[in-house]
């Protein structure tokens, strides 16, 4: 059963929830079994609208990626450097898998919970391949109750190998 191990309430009762078709949420849904999180890399700024046009920066970070533990990669039969699709209740992105010891499975409530991490720096026009997109397509459109700072650090996803 869905249980919050930190608080009696499942979610913050004053968190803003918008009722559009994109505002679907899933917690213990078997379709989205892994925790997703997002972050930045040094080479790009925000959605990359300025940095992706800089050849030296795109040279160093050319593609959308998703980082995962060796354990999850083994479970999903994903090789380091392979292209994968990451999906949430709201959207999907393609990414290159980075299999790394820097990610380790969590032990939550006696069960193993896997986490994956993605940057949100990629999008249209650059790189010209047209295959790289932003992790913002996956993240929920909610924020903290006072300032609406977006909640992009914890959401549920699935990762599958691209056929």
């Amino acid at each position: 059963m869905e249980k919050n191990f930190l608080n009696a309430k499942l979610i913050n009762p004053v968190a803003p929830i918008y009722d559009t078709e994109k505002d679907t949420y899933a917690t213990c849904d078997p379709r989205y079994p892994y925790v997703g999180t997002t972050y930045r890399v040094t080479e790009h700024w925000q959605t990359g609208v300025m940095t992706r046009y800089q050849p030296y920066l795109l040279e160093m970070q050319p593609q959308m990626f998703v980082e995962m533990s060796e354990q999850l990669a083994k479970l999903k039969q994903i090789q380091n450097g392979e292209r994968v699709r990451v999906t949430s209740a709201r959207g999907a992105v393609e990414a290159t898998a980075i299999v790394t010891k820097r990610f380790q499975p969590f032990n939550v409530g006696g069960g193993i919970v896997h986490q994956v991490g993605l940057p949100w720096h990629f999008g249209w026009i650059k790189p010209t391949s047209g295959t790289e997109d932003s992790a913002n397509l996956l993240t929920p459109s909610t924020g903290d109750p006072n300032t609406r700072i977006p909640e992009t650090k914890a959401f549920m996803v699935n990762v599958v190998k691209l056929a």
């Binding site: 050849p55 040279e59 970070q61 990626f65 380091n80 450097g81 290159t96 980075i98």
Partner: peptide, 15 residues
């Protein structure tokens, strides 16, 4: 020097 064409090979290192 020009940027070399690169792809992500499963690491942050590039080229």
């Amino acid at each position: 020097l020009p940027a070399d064409p690169t792809v992500n090979m499963g690491s942050y290192q590039n080229p």
